[in-house]
């Protein structure tokens, strides 16, 4: 079997996400009715709001895992924080793209600098900065520590972004479904709930894969370092037996096989 980050559980989850996305497309584009005011553009609601809410959730997971890392100092918390931020960034791009297209019909412009949109842009730049910090060429513990501190900044920005329509007067409409008097019913509410489930499962599924990728990256980094140290030792002691760690595959600097 080909080595990969898949497992029986992730395969089942992947099939569920694919099937769920197909059903969601059917409901969002065909079965759910047009809105009385927003007409057909309401169909963007079923991707815009779920991706935004799941992205916010992802950033809170990053914040929680960053706190976990700063307390526990274990690799697991660091990787959870990084994997969740990656998924949050992708979902936030989907939010921004769908929001821009929706805004073009509703407001007549793709973008305007109101509080909600500006804070979303700020949040996106912040998470890109966080992901850039995670790639800094530092010792792993130091990099994880710096990343965790930067990751904490996502908390106030995400909260401000979420409540922007409540705290300030914005062009962006106020909360539709996260208040107690939801303004949706029937098929619209069902399609929205389905969107939340599908994008939530997608987040969970890809999060597991991203977690495993980051974990494997750390193992490859360890093996490369061990191999490089063994090479230097061998250079210093030409008669010493070869003790470099064995790497399967190729392409790792210092790999000796």
């Amino acid at each position: 079997m080909v080595a990969s980050t898949s497992s029986p559980g992730t395969r089942i989850l992947g099939v569920a996400v694919g099937a769920g996305l197909a059903v969601l497309l059917l409901f969002a584009l065909v079965l759910s009715p047009a809105d009385a005011v927003q007409e057909e553009t309401v169909r963007m609601f079923y991707v815009h709001v779920p991706t935004a809410l799941i992205a916010f959730t992802a950033f809170f997971v990053t914040v929680g895992a960053s706190v976990g890392y700063l307390v526990r100092r274990t690799e697991w918390w660091d990787i959870v924080a990084g994997a969740s931020a990656e998924m949050g960034a992708v979902l936030l791009v989907a939010t921004l793209v769908s929001g821009a297209l929706w805004g073009r019909v509703t407001w007549g412009v793709y973008w305007t600098w109101d509080a909600r949109l500006t804070l979303t842009a700020l949040l996106f730049v912040l998470v890109l900065g966080y992901l850039a910090v995670r790639r800094l060429p530092l010792e792993r513990g130091q990099r994880s520590r710096v990343s965790a501190v930067v990751g904490l900044l996502l908390a106030p920005t995400t909260i401000a972004c979420h409540y922007a329509t409540t705290w300030w007067r914005t062009l962006h409409q106020s909360q539709t479904v996260t208040t107690t008097d939801a303004k949706l019913d029937g098929l619209m509410l069902f399609t929205f709930a389905l969107g939340m489930i599908v994008f939530g499962l997608l987040y969970g599924w890809l999060m597991i894969h991203r977690f495993r990728i980051l974990w494997l990256e750390n193992r490859v980094e360890d093996l490369s370092l061990d191999a490089a140290i063994a090479d230097r030792l061998r250079e210093a002691q030409p008669d010493a037996p070869r003790t470099s760690p064995t790497l399967t595959g190729s392409g790792i600097p210092g790999a000796t096989g």
């Binding site: 080909v2 080595a3 990969s4 980050t5 898949s6 894969h209 495993r212 990728i213 494997l216 990256e217 193992r219 490859v220 093996l223 064995t246 790497l247 399967t248 595959g249 190729s250 392409g251 790792i252």
Partner: peptide, 10 residues
């Protein structure tokens, strides 16, 4: 994932 998994011992 496949590329990285191939580089790490089973």
């Amino acid at each position: 994932g496949r590329k990285l998994a191939a580089q790490v011992p089973e």
